[in-house]
Design a protein around this nucleic acid. Structure first.
Length: 1046
RNA sequence: GGGCCUAUAGCUCAGCUCGGUUAGAGCGCUUCCCUGAUAAGGAAGAGGUCGAUGGUUCAAGUCCAUCUAGGCCCA
């Protein structure tokens, strides 16, 4: 027997019960164990950074990371799910700095690195707890108890092993380069970090005159340079021109001193009216000296500086074609100036401020110095032009400080050396959506540059390289290896700063003391190393690693193309010459209801836990998986979640409640109560089952293609069909406890429940327990231990589907005709006339459904009802005609419209081709080339393309009385409901009517009324009844009655 | 400046792969109907220059080109 299922349900409360059930019965653990022998389908958890509280956007990827493993598990695959936490890195340091009120690295040094890192470790634990809570609540099944932590000793040692391998391969090198650098955090940023922090800012755009002091125009002309970073002018060292560009000497329109600019840019830079005096090439200009813009910093004594240099990176696309060079702050500048032997002058300290001894701007933050510098240029009359310039400029992705391009020593991984291998690996990776593969991600690989790996920070995996005074390097691949190098046991040393820094060793090359280099590594390397480091490979976990490399499935949001998606592939390729994943699902971002990014600043944040407490995790999961395209940005809000609850989840739930109610009333036992075989059940039953299998096929295909949106659409449509067509049409059979109907709905709900289980695991679990588990003891204990439905093509009946679609279409038209005529559906009518292609093939069964739904006694074919009853109109079916006639389609269509529709219809309905005249020639057309519409003449019908339903509105006295009886049934039912009777309660009925017609109707239809309202006795009384029970009077009918529970 | 994505009803989105003459659904709104599971259901109505322009075609929301706006990513 089913459990009772209440029609009203508090979904979030139900979910908490289900969570308790899963925990008590260890369902997740059992699902892993039960599938352990299946073929592996490997999934990698991209570790969330434990530096803040989980947001609703974190739910997004976690939904997909749950749906597909559940789906594949149901299909018999073994899908181990090991959680992970990203523990290191600047984000964690920043969170701790904020807590401690620090403003920079000095504060950390003063506080003590050991204490600071302890705080970081503690912060990680705190945030992981919050993530774990959210993970559990949303029903994301992942094994938190065996989670990998990137700060664990074994994890760090694995990372070291891979770095040592890359070092030994000669691909981990130290280099001095200009790289983006965060002056607040005091560390360089890698390119993929840079990618995350572009912000639109307004900078000054200045054109500055640099008076020539040598060459043919010395003292008589100025070089004109353009920059958006005036602060770099302080360390101006040279001006670059391009050898093959023509430059001109031009006098601006205001008649001031002539300036040198590239010829194509004269108007762009100087405006209209400039007078060109002379032209020459870049080559001519080499070594022309000029007076530098500021005399604030010293250059080395005797060095020849401040002249024109040549390089091909100069373009004539904007600016002046003359590029100011500050080698400390530009990669190209550094390269060009090096070839001319120019010095690197850097007046800016590592915290981003000008040195105190610099006049004018000493101690000023570099970005803040622009204003004073521009004012000074202006005062000295060498500022040619100054405008505000809006552009995107890289900022630190965590602390939002403007980055500075800054020359510094750094460790790099030579990823450019394995670029071809990366491209090869990408070529065999499946991206969803596939545009990422050759688009965004492919571009990124094609423009690959070396990975700036080192960070001058504290809380990270220490770079495992030891260096001696002679500059020899050695890399440690583990603590054991380090112990061998050091000649003592260091296995108990915490592989973090500052402890690991205390380990020194004799240089294997020269024997001098070697100390660890000071840097830690980019935390993105940690997460990218998870395929092996999560097992501690190769120091441990060989078997686990070999079973689980590469992964079949990873999934994150699109911002990871340069983050985790890249580092995973890069490290896999560097270490094993093989990428670590085969299929990658790349999600769009989740936006707030207003279409903007959720941010504290805008106050539009929706926290995930309250959202799930209000609407339920199933609703949020359904939204993430099925609302809109997973790979485009989507807006989440209360409205959309409420709609999901109402339209999808509650419709499903109510169908279940309905089934439970009537099955229990009838004592129906699935499997035990005999039900007719499918082939002998009514068409409606066969249709519902057929559609269930078609649904299973569709959902399966959609999920195999990672298209959850399509799966959701199919599921929602089927649930709607089941509830609002199958159940509604079959209600009477349920009231009567018809085993065929109950068995059919049982089977349909069984399939839907399994298909929905990966997406909405809570409500399906509850239904599994209430309907299936209780009645079939050999079924698994949980829907999540059950197998995916086997798709049975033999149960899919296309012909039946077509017929049902036509039936529903005809019902729709009939209802429209009813509404149009103003005759209520309650009023029976004698007949409806139907004109439709396919009518003759429609089974009696379905015709009866239509007649019942429209409340008419019989259906007749419109064509057979006689020509004078209907008007015909004919129009072209362009799709068919176009194929046949091409350019000649239009005249044929016109001829069809002009032809006599009665004659056309007569021929075509009879299965003969019809003849039409086109430009004086005769042509024949077939039935599929013409759309015939039949319109009854009386005006009581509604017609649609190709199909017509007409109602005979003649209401005979008999029909009138039948209508009144139905009216009486309705008011009595209402009284039943309002008096609180159960649907199966029997009643006694006493009635009294004043109107003679109503009296006649009730007397004539007493048996029908009794059956409809479940009256065991019906008595006509002489006056309006009163007393015990529910008494009521309906003025319109002139009916008074009393019902009493029998 | 470059690459990719998006643009369809007041709102949220289908449809575009494979072109077919009345562009759909849900929510919201108006009117009516139905109700023995339903927080439901049905009918009618209002609401669309399918971002713009040009092209291909007998025929374009759909294919092509250019442009515009927004988003993401990169310079």
């Amino acid at each position: 027997m089913y459990r009772p299922v209440p029609p009203q349900i508090d979904l979030p409360a139900m979910e908490r019960e289900v969570l308790a059930f899963w925990a008590d019965e260890k369902i997740f653990e059992r699902s892993l164990a039960a599938s352990a022998d299946g073929p592996p389908w490997v999934f990698y958890e991209g570790p969330p950074t434990a530096n803040g509280m989980p947001g609703t956007h974190h739910v997004e990827a976690r939904v997909f990371k749950d749906v597909f493993p559940r789906f594949k598990t149901m299909k018999g695959y073994s899908v181990p799910r090991k959680a992970g936490w990203d523990c290191h890195g600047l984000p964690v340091e920043l969170a701790v700095e904020k807590e401690l009120g620090f403003t920079g690295k000095g504060d950390i040094e003063a506080y003590g690195v050991a204490e600071f890192n302890a705080k970081c470790r503690e912060s990680v634990h705190r945030h992981v707890d919050a993530f774990a809570e959210m993970t559990e609540r949303m029903g994301y099944w992942i094994d938190l108890s065996t989670a990998y932590w990137t700060m664990d000793k074994s994890y760090v040692e694995s990372v070291w092993w891979s770095l040592a391998k890359i070092f030994d391969d000669g691909r981990l090198v130290q280099d001095h380069r200009v790289a983006p650098y965060c002056p607040r955090c005091g560390t360089g940023l890698s390119d993929h970090e840079l990618a995350q922090g572009y912000e639109t800012v307004v900078d000054p755009s200045v054109y500055v005159r640099l008076p020539l002091t040598s060459g043919p125009h010395a003292g008589a002309a100025d070089l004109l340079v353009w920059t958006t970073t005036p602060w770099t002018l302080v360390s101006n060292t040279a001006v670059a021109a391009r050898a093959d560009v023509t430059y001109v000497l031009a006098r601006p329109a205001d008649g001031s001193t002539p300036v040198v600019v590239a010829e194509p840019l004269v108007e762009y830079a100087l405006g209209e009216g400039a007078q060109v005096l002379e032209s020459f090439t870049g080559t001519d200009m080499e070594h022309w000296h000029y007076r530098r813009p500021f005399e604030l910093v010293a250059f080395p004594d005797g060095a020849d500086t401040h002249f024109v240099v040549l390089d091909d990176y100069v373009t004539t696309e904007d600016g002046t074609g003359l590029v100011h060079q500050a080698p400390a702050f530009g990669a190209d500048d550094l390269r060009v100036c090096r070839t001319y032997g120019l010095p690197v002058v850097n007046p800016i300290t590592s915290d981003g401020h000008f040195r105190e001894d610099v006049p004018l701007v000493g101690g000023v933050f570099f970005k803040k110095a622009d204003e004073a510098l521009v004012a000074d240029l202006q005062a000295r009359g060498i500022l040619f032009k100054h405008i505000a310039y809006e552009h995107s400029y890289p900022h630190c992705w965590r602390c939002h400080t403007a980055l500075i391009y800054y020359a510094q020593p750094s460790w790099y991984i030579r990823t450019t050396e394995v670029k071809d291998a990366l491209l090869r690996e990408n070529a065999r990776t499946n991206w969803y959506p596939d545009t990422i593969k050759d688009g965004r991600y492919g571009d990124w690989l094609n423009n690959n540059i070396d990975w700036a790996l080192s960070r001058n920070r504290y809380w990270g995996t220490p770079l495992p390289i030891w260096r001696c005074g002679e500059g020899h390097h050695v890399a440690a691949a583990s603590l054991a290896h380090l112990g061998e190098l050091a000649g003592r046991d260091v296995s108990d040393v915490d592989p973090h700063r500052p402890y690991i820094d205390e380990v020194t060793l004799p240089c294997p090359t020269c024997g001098d003391e070697a100390r660890r280099v000071p840097e830690v590594i980019d935390a993105w390397y940690d997460s990218g190393a998870m395929p092996f480091a999560q097992w501690g490979y190769p120091h441990a976990g060989h078997a686990e690693f070999e079973k689980a490399y590469p992964a079949q499935f990873i999934c994150e949001a699109i911002d990871q193309t340069r983050g985790w998606f890249y580092t995973l592939m890069a490290i896999g390729t560097l270490t094993f010459d093989r990428s670590s994943y085969e299929n990658v699902l790349c999600l769009g971002h989740i936006l707030a209801e207003d279409g903007r990014k959720m941010s504290k600043h805008l106050g539009n944040i929706l926290e995930p836990m309250p959202l799930m407490d209000q609407h339920g995790a199933d609703a949020l999961r359904w939204f993430m998986a099925c609302s809109g395209s997973p790979w485009s940005a989507r807006r989440v809000g209360h409205n959309v979640l409420q709609e999901i609850v109402r339209k999808s989840l509650l419709t499903y739930w109510n169908t279940v409640a309905f089934q439970s109610l009537y099955a229990r009333t009838a004592g129906f036992e699935p499997g035990a109560t005999p039900a007719p075989p499918l082939a002998e059940r009514p068409a409606l039953d066969r249709w519902a089952i057929s559609e269930a299998h078609r649904l299973a096929q569709g959902v399966d295909a959609a999920l195999e293609g990672f298209d959850t949106q399509k799966a959701g659409r199919l599921l929602a449509a089927y649930v709607d069909d089941l509830s609002n067509w199958y159940v509604r049409r079959s209600r009477r059979r349920f009231w009567q406890g018809d085993p065929a109907a109950l068995a059919t709905l049982h089977e349909c709900l069984y399939v839907v429940t399994l298909l929905m289980a990966p997406i909405t695991p809570f409500v399906t679990e509850r239904v599994w327990q209430d309907l299936f588990r209780t009645t079939s003891p050999d079924l698994p204990d949980s829907v999540h231990l059950a197998r995916w439905p086997v798709i049975d093509g033999s149960l899919m009946d296309d012909d039946l589907a077509t017929q049902m679609a036509l039936s529903r279409r005809l019902v729709e038209l009939g209802r429209a005709a009813r509404a149009d005529s103003g005759v209520k559906t309650r009023q029976p009518l004698s007949r409806a006339l139907v004109g439709a292609h396919g009518w003759t093939a429609l089974s009696e069964d379905l015709r009866a459904q239509i007649a019942e739904e429209l409340n008419v006694t019989r259906l007749e074919s419109l064509a057979e009802a006689g020509g004078d009853l209907v008007d015909y109109s004919a129009k072209a079916n362009f799709r068919a005609l176009g194929k046949r006639f091409g350019k000649g389609t239009q005249p044929v269509a016109a001829a069809i419209a002009a032809a006599d529709p009665v004659a056309l219809a007569a021929d075509l309905r009879a299965g003969r081709p019809a003849t039409i005249a086109v430009n004086g020639e005769e042509l024949t057309v077939d039935a599929d080339e013409v759309i015939i519409t039949e319109t009854p003449r009386e005006g009581w019908s509604v017609a649609r393309e190709g199909e017509t339903v007409a109602l005979d509105l003649t209401i005979t006295p008999e029909l009138r009385r039948a209508g009144l009886a139905r009216e009486a049934v309705r008011v009595i039912q209402e009284a039943r409901k309002s008096s609180g009777l159960e649907v199966a309660d029997r009643i006694t009925l006493e009635w009294h009517a004043v109107d003679a017609e109503a009296v006649a109707a009730l007397r004539e239809h007493a048996d029908l009324v009794a059956a409809e309202v479940l009256a065991t006795s019906v008595a006509e009384v002489s006056e309006a009844p009163s007393g015990d029970g529910a008494a009521a009077t309906d003025a319109e009918l002139g009916l008074s009655f009393r019902i009493t529970k029998a």
